[in-house]
């Protein structure tokens, strides 16, 4: 995984609450056995019409969204199923951060493991972002803060170990494999049958 320290991008705004993982990637695309190439199915039923043509009124199809890597979404982004295909589709599409007031637990865990930053901000910052689509913002992991073009800065919570992994481009599996002695001892002494 590529280390991430700062991310600077214009935002794309999808002002919908409770965007579930069935919207992020519908179940009919989960029959894959790999994790690659899912960006083409991102928000499939919102992005494309019944004939497969892109819908001009959907924000990710509009020219100003091109190249943007920060998605600002309504409250409770990523609710629903545990499918990791959701962050795989978002990152394959080119997104590196999702900003909301609340992000669902399983999605947030999955995002962190795929270099997709779940950024939870206060309602006032969120409101500003919703009202200013395309604003150039900076997300900094050193200070765990998001800076608006106004110069205002908002701190966001980020689990320290996940932050360490993101900033150093390492994954959690290495850490767990390094706890082999403790795991073996637990199994010998304490684990139930």
């Amino acid at each position: 995984m590529e280390p991430i320290r700062t991310l600077r991008s214009r935002t794309v705004v999808l002002a919908v609450n409770d965007i579930d993982t069935d919207q992020i990637i519908p179940a009919r695309f989960l029959t894959t056995t790999t994790r690659e190439g899912l960006g083409r199915h991102l928000f499939a039923d919102w992005r494309f019409g019944p004939d497969g043509a892109p819908r001009a009124d959907f924000v990710l199809n509009q020219p100003q969204s091109s190249g943007s890597s920060i998605l600002v979404a309504g409250n409770n982004f990523g609710c629903g199923s545990s499918r990791e295909h959701a962050p795989w589709a978002l990152t394959d599409f080119g997104l590196r951060a999702v900003v909301s007031t609340q992000i669902a637990d399983i999605f947030r865990n999955n995002a962190l493991k795929n270099g997709l930053l779940p950024v939870i901000v206060e309602p006032s910052t969120h409101r500003w972002l919703l009202e200013h689509p395309g604003a150039e913002v900076t997300i900094d992991l050193d200070t765990t803060s998001l800076t608006l073009p106004t110069g205002e800065t908002a701190r966001f919570p980020l689990e320290p170990f996940a932050r360490y992994c993101l900033m150093n481009g390492v994954d959690e599996l290495g850490f767990l494999l390094g706890r082999e002695a403790e795991i073996a001892a637990y199994e010998t002494l304490r684990a139930p049958a």
């Binding site: 199923s81 545990s82 399983i106 999955n110 994954d171 599996l173 795991i183």
Partner: peptide, 22 residues
């Protein structure tokens, strides 16, 4: 509880998960 596929891999390899207490 439900987990993602990366975590499925963690459990395959170590029978453990890294978790913050809810």
């Amino acid at each position: 509880f439900g987990i993602g596929t990366t975590e499925v891999g963690h459990v395959f390899a170590t029978q453990c998960l890294l978790q913050r207490k809810p």
